[in-house]
Structures are given as structure tokens and as C-alpha cells.
Amino acid sequence: MLEILANSLPQLAEGLKTTIGLTVLSLILGTILGIFLAVIRIYGKFPLPYLIIFYERVFRGIPLIVIFFLFYFGLSLQIGLNIDPFTAAIFGLGLRGAAYQAQIFRSAINSIPEGQMVAARSLGMSKLSAIRNIILPQMLRLSVPGWSNEFTIVLKDTSIAFSIGVIELMRQGRYIYVNNPDYVLPVFLFIALIYFIMVISANKTLSYLEKKYKMSGFEIGVER
């Protein structure tokens, strides 16, 4: 058993790198785009908020695997954009994640008292400057719990990139057991363990950060 795992380790390490790369890159894309979507949905001028509602509906209503197929087989192969599976997966996960993150950020912004914006404007800040300096910093702090949840969802869902041939953990596991059918159970149990450890440590780290960035006494909505 240990020997099996020792033999498979280099390959699994490769897969793990890809899995982590997918997670990090698609989270970055999803977070940045999600912030824009949330801000424009709240502060944007007609018809932008409606376009964003539509975007969110679509990306939240379709299975990830269908998004992957549209991006990879559709846009890349059929249309000929020639993006590799890894990139297609990042866009699929990132654009879908943005739709969920936009929701997280939006409800955070909505929980910031209106007076914050009013006070910023009364100092002479432009709307954009007020959003950047007053609203966004508070929004980010309020979003940490929702964002942590999203983080682990994305981490687990990178496994679905298997379906368009990204050579991440699951695909490496598959390669290993196709060559050595005896390895199948230990290898996949080991892969499960890797995911489990990553999910648990991500949760632990993020809840530590959540506490740290919850500045002393910072409580939204408690004014008096």
C-alpha cells in the first residue's frame, strides 16, 4: 500500500500543482470580476444592472460541466479559438464563480449603512472615490465568510475539469490506475485525503483571517 502511494507520488504531485493552479487563478478571476459585477449592479446606470442580473442568472443556472463544454468544445474547438483545456477551465470556473461572488459582495455592500456613502460624498469625494475608499474596504471585510465558502466550492469543483481533459489530480489518478488496476482504491482514497486536507486547512486559515480582519469593535449597523 505504502509502496503504491510512493510510486504514484510524483504524478499526484504534478496533478496537485494543476489543481491548485486552477483554484487560485479561477478564484482571482472570479473575485475581481465579482467585485465589478456587484458594484455595477448596485451603482451602475440602466441598463447595466439588468445585464448583470441576466449574467448571474445564466451562470448560476447552468451546470459547470456544461459551461466547460461550451467553452472548450464549443468556443475552442468548434469556433477555433484554440484555447487549451486548462485555460478553458479557468474561464469556466472564474466566470461562474464571479456570478456567485457578485452575490456575496452585493449583500455585503447592501449591509453597509447608507450614511457611509453620504458622509463620504459630503467630504467632497466623488462617487468612484467613495466606492473605492469607503465602500469596498468594508465590503471586503464583510465578505470573508461567504468568500471562504466559495473558496472550498471552487477547490472541489476543479475536479470537474477532468471532463475536458485537464490533467489535474483526478486525471492523474485515472492515469495511475489504468496502468495499475490494483492501485485504484488506495490512489483515490489518497486523492480524497489530499482534497480533505486542503479543504480543512483552507477553512481554518480563512476563519483565522476572518477573525484577524474583523477589527476590534468593528460592527456594521451598530451606531450608538
Binding site: K156, D157, S159, I160, F162, M170, G173, R174, Y177, V184, L185, F188, L189, I191, A192, Y195, F196, V199, I200
Partner: peptide
Amino acid sequence: RGTPLLVQLFIIYFA
């Protein structure tokens, strides 16, 4: 909750 659904399916079906 700490592991992907796909891993669970692989274990059940392939392993």
C-alpha cells in the same frame, strides 16, 4: 463535505 463529489463517484464506481 471536504471532498469533491467526483472523487466519491470514482471511488464507488471504479474502486
